[in-house]
């Protein structure tokens, strides 16, 4: 019962954060809304017994990536008058909702066709660092290595893109 209340609270917070993200005019406000969503999602992960992902969601996502985004927003020093004038954005959002409604209802239909299963009691180790680590390094070793290369490439790419360039001829 307590878990249901928590789920309701977190999901409402997450949706509100998402709505805030797409409606606020200033990116800083949007970013803060996104942080709310991220933290709520972390709570949901905890409800789903994903301990490691819960921790990483808080540390890496809500912590590192979001602070990077906020740092960039501050670095660019965006003033309100520099922002694009988006007078019709609510109209656009409304149009978007209309267009997306079929998608949503289609997905909903599919989800409701999944047989309802009661959550079973899990063993102690589910979602812990050791267990996820074992799966990661036993069954998912190659994708893991590929992702590490991807990160390296992204690092180099970011340096090349944003770094100071020498004046080309």
């Amino acid at each position: 019962m307590f878990a249901e209340w928590l789920f309701a609270a977190f999901s409402i917070l997450a949706v509100l954060g998402g709505i805030g993200l797409v409606t606020f005019r200033h990116p800083m406000n949007s970013a803060m809304s996104l942080v709310v969503t991220m933290i709520s999602l972390a709570g949901l992960y905890a409800l789903l017994s994903a301990k490691l992902i819960f921790a990483i969601q808080l540390i890496v996502y809500a912590g590192a990536i979001m602070s990077l985004i906020i740092f960039i927003i501050m670095f660019l020093n965006v003033r309100t008058e520099d922002l694009p004038e988006e007078k019709g954005r609510f109209l656009y959002l409304f149009g978007g909702v209309v267009v997306l409604a079929p998608v949503f209802f289609f997905l909903k239909k599919i989800i409701q066709s999944i047989p309802a299963t009661k959550a079973t009691i899990l063993g102690d180790g589910f979602g812990g660092i050791k267990e996820v680590g074992l799966v990661l390094f036993k069954d998912w070793l190659l994708p893991f290595e590929i992702v590490s290369i991807l990160l390296l490439v992204a690092l180099v790419g970011a340096v090349v893109l944003a770094g100071k360039r020498r004046m080309s001829k």
């Binding site: 993200l21 797409v22 606020f24 990116p27 949007s30 970013a31 985004i69 960039i72 927003i73 922002l83 694009p84 988006e86 954005r89 656009y92 959002l93 149009g95 978007g96 909702v97 997306l100």
Partner: peptide
């Protein structure tokens, strides 16, 4: 919705 309706790159 955010991608299709907003013009701000960061958003």
């Amino acid at each position: 919705l955010g991608v299709v309706s907003r013009r701000n790159v960061l958003i």
